[in-house]
Amino acid sequence: PEAADLRALARHLYEAYLKYFPLTKAKARAILSGKTGDNATFVIHDMKSLMEGEQFLNCRQIPIQEHHISGQGPTNAVELRFFHSCQSRSAEAVREVTEFAKSIPGFTDLDLNDQVTLLKYGVIEVLIIMMAPLMNKDGTLISYGQIFMTREFLKSLRKPFCQMMEPKFEFSVKFNTLELDDSDMALFLAVIILSGDRPGLLNVKPIEQLQETVLHALELQLKLNHPDSLQLFAKLLQKMTDLRQIVTDHVHLLQLLKKTEVDMCLHPLLQEIMKDLY
């Protein structure tokens, strides 16, 4: 493809990214470095501040069955309640990623079953990549950037909740050294979604063709946007391998939670995605 077409594709995906993802990397980094001018970020660092911060987390919360909770003691309830908030936000994020996927030129022309498969397998990878800009070595922004939750607090939760975020922090801290910006991210996310090797795809060829075009656009974008960063394109593609391992581990952890936590009900949309996944 012509360079001009690839630049147009990059612009289009960046615009879609800005349209569908409310918290950009630029905004997140401004909040994390304290450059937003206000001090509105609420910090959750222990159980007390978690309870105080819960009002922020109430976005479309799944009602939790009190009679189940009462048998478990207050601390367990807080963890489960927090986990439910995370699920609500994840389900909302899946909707955002779906809209972004639909904006990738050619995506909606693919077989509908293949669109489903690409989302089913791609969406957790995308969500994990999108966590990276929200994180630093000390913690992560949550709730659209209104809250900063410390890494130490997440590590202090009871097992297996404490094991859920640590691998994402380790990945994100390394990923952030690549210093991608939002316009790079938009192309990278599209590349992840358009993976032709997802299990059960019916018609791989058109997906690979779409991915190849986006890969060209990404390669050109990185050359122009990061002229001094050697091998950035190759380094970024290598991250896709690490990402698959993180997703596999994440899914296994969720399956474990489902077995061990009596009160855990997985959000129906997330259930759909997790079912028979790896």
Binding site: R60, S88, A91, E92, V94, R95, T98, E99, K102, T108, L112, N113, Q115, V116, L119, K120, H267, P268, L269, E272, I273, K275
Partner: peptide
């Protein structure tokens, strides 16, 4: 198709808020 009902819905609906 039944197995991925919500994903199908999300893909086929417009950007209007879907009841999650």
């Amino acid at each position: 198709k039944e197995k991925h009902k919500i994903l199908h819905q999300l893909l086929q609906n417009s950007t209007s808020p879907v009841d999650l």
